[in-house]
Design a protein around this nucleic acid. Sequence first.
DNA 1: GCAAAAGTGTTGTGTCTACACCCATGT
DNA 2: ACATGGGTGTAGACACAACACTTTTGC
Lengths: 216, 216
Amino acid sequence: MLAVVLQVRASTLQTLLWQRAREPFAAAWALPGAVLAPAETLDESIRRHLAAKVDVRELAHAEQLGTWSEPGRNPSRWELATASLGLVPAGVDPELPDDTAWHPVDRLPSLAFDHGAIVLAGRERLRAKLSYTNVGFALAPPTFTLPELRDLYVAALGHEVSATNLKRVLLRRDVLEPTGRHRDSGRAGGRPAELYRFRATSLEVTDPFAALRPPT
Amino acid sequence: MLAVVLQVRASTLQTLLWQRAREPFAAAWALPGAVLAPAETLDESIRRHLAAKVDVRELAHAEQLGTWSEPGRNPSRWELATASLGLVPAGVDPELPDDTAWHPVDRLPSLAFDHGAIVLAGRERLRAKLSYTNVGFALAPPTFTLPELRDLYVAALGHEVSATNLKRVLLRRDVLEPTGRHRDSGRAGGRPAELYRFRATSLEVTDPFAALRPPT
DNA sequence: GCAAAAGTGTTGTGTCTACACCCATGT
DNA sequence: ACATGGGTGTAGACACAACACTTTTGC
């Protein structure tokens, strides 16, 4: 049981890593993980483990990522790992134990085991779902302006996103709704931005695949 | 380790099931499965198991489906199962042991454990991938006419598909290529159909998600 | 007034569906 | 000839991206 926990921090997509104390891979960074307790669901396990040891209670969304089974993945013994992807909204800053820290996903150190590949799989899953679901809710704070949301998408997707078009896509799909309130403009002036929120706080597919859909 | 093996047979999407001899769920139908051998990959395991016991050597595609971890899924003892999805091209008709048979996915008997839900997850995965990848290659024989391919898509997707539009979608994406040969028209006459084949025989994403893509 | 920041209007392009029409064969 | 099955042409509906333009604020 491994957890890829992602959050946008300082305009960068980061993941939670833990520095190993023992061999194999002593002192290397690794994903947080646990052995599954008896009679426990994978989803329960990730939430229990993260809440207890890492004090991240704020997982806005979690889903299963996959199971890694390469025989050589652990040099000590044959071991499978099922990884979950967890998302923490921007702005939350949980207190972490000394051996645990956030690391930018696009400048990872060399990780223990096959954890590097697992983190990248998590990022790819997030990127794909940003474009056809409402997962954005799990990266964003409760309310936000469109430029703020745009910055979160830029950090997660790794390329420019136009606030204009992002707004239109998410409104057309009924993913966002305006709160009616505004954020005051800063020292530099500028028009006050409207505040939005996500309509739903659980995963919904908002853009079912376009091709070969059932006839009307 | 469980395997959801799907094939279009008699214009119907069917899955391979095995009738249990022992408790729990004696005499109930269940997915073929095996305990993972040491130092074995999940993908190797499904292929080894199916080749040895069920004589299905013709898996054109296999991928991981997910891991089921509900504590109550097996009444006897706590047990996880990782399921794979395997696809067999139409036309292949492997010889099966007496306790094994194909069953239409939309008229399944009541299955052992949570296997019913797992089969449906496999079907959903197939349906989704038919619309944005070239997975069709794993359902179709080496060459085929467009009406034949259309019938395979209809069976897998569960709704009408127009051969006209199917052709255009798959040609635009460079998934199909004409062989230059034709199939003779039947007794009833009619224009001879062109024979096509898939360009690739491994999974490719041919229609990356349309929204929020990187600027040119 | 002017710069800065946010938001709107408009146009163009690509992809898909629907449907009318045309083509090649057997009887 | 004509029924039958297969293939093509064309037009409409959307969704998205790009970019020019307008609005609202601070100084």
